[in-house]
C-alpha cells in the first residue's frame, strides 16, 4: 500500500507518496526530480547513490524511502548554497577529479562526510574513506588530490 511520508530534502520539507518497497534513490530521482543522485549498482558497492541522512553519508539505493521518513536528506543538489560551489565541488573541478561525472555526486557526498569528521585526512585515510565509491574513469588520483585540496581550503 502506498503511504505518504514527510522528510526534509535539501532543507525543505517534502511530502511524497511511496510504496514501502520504494528505494530512497528512486524516490529522489523519479518523484522528487533530484536526478543528481545516481544508481550504478545493486549490491551497495559503487556509491553513486550516496546522499547524506542527518549529515552522514549513506547509500540511498540501500535504504527504503520509508526509513528516511522524518529525517533530513541532503543530495548533491543541496550540498552548497544556491549558485555557489561547496569547497569539494570546487576542488573536484580545479583538480580534474572527474571525467564522465557519473560517480562524482556520490564521491563528493562521501568526501564531505569524511572532511566533516576528519578535516585533515592523510592520503591513505582518503583512499580508505572512498572504498565505497567506485570510479572507472580517473584512477582516483585526481579525486584524492581534490579531497586534499578541499581539506587544505577549510
Amino acid at each position: 500500500m502506498k503511504r505518504t511520508i514527510t522528510l526534509t530534502v535539501n532543507g525543505a520539507p517534502r511530502s511524497v507518496e511511496v510504496e514501502p518497497r520504494a528505494l530512497l534513490a528512486l524516490v529522489l530521482r523519479d518523484q522528487l526530480d533530484l536526478t543528481g543522485t545516481h544508481i550504478g549498482c545493486d549490491t551497495s558497492q559503487c556509491g553513486a547513490c550516496t546522499v547524506h541522512i542527518d549529515g552522514r553519508a549513506v547509500k540511498s539505493c540501500t535504504m527504503l524511502a520509508v526509513q528516511a521518513e522524518g529525517h533530513a536528506v541532503t543530495t548533491i543538489e543541496g550540498l552548497a548554497a544556491k549558485d555557489r560551489l561547496h569547497p569539494l565541488q570546487q576542488a573536484f573541478w580545479d583538480k580534474h577529479g572527474l571525467q564522465c561525472g557519473f560517480c562524482t555526486p556520490g564521491m563528493i557526498m562521501t568526501a564531505a562526510d569524511l572532511l566533516a569528521h576528519n578535516p585533515k585526512p592523510s592520503e591513505a585515510e582518503i583512499r580508505h574513506a572512498l572504498e565505497g565509491n567506485l570510479c572507472r574513469c580517473t584512477g582516483y588520483q585526481n579525486i584524492v588530490a581534490a579531497v586534499q585540496l578541499a581539506a587544505g581550503a577549510r
Binding site: 551497495s44 556509491g47 550516496t50 541522512i53 552522514r56 553519508a57 549513506v58 547509500k59 540501500t62 535504504m63 562521501t110 562526510d113 569524511l114 574513506a129 572512498l130 572504498e131 565505497g132 565509491n133
Partner: peptide
C-alpha cells in the same frame, strides 16, 4: 563495509 555502510 565502507564509510557509508558503517554509517548505516
Amino acid at each position: 563495509g565502507d564509510l557509508q555502510v558503517r554509517n548505516a
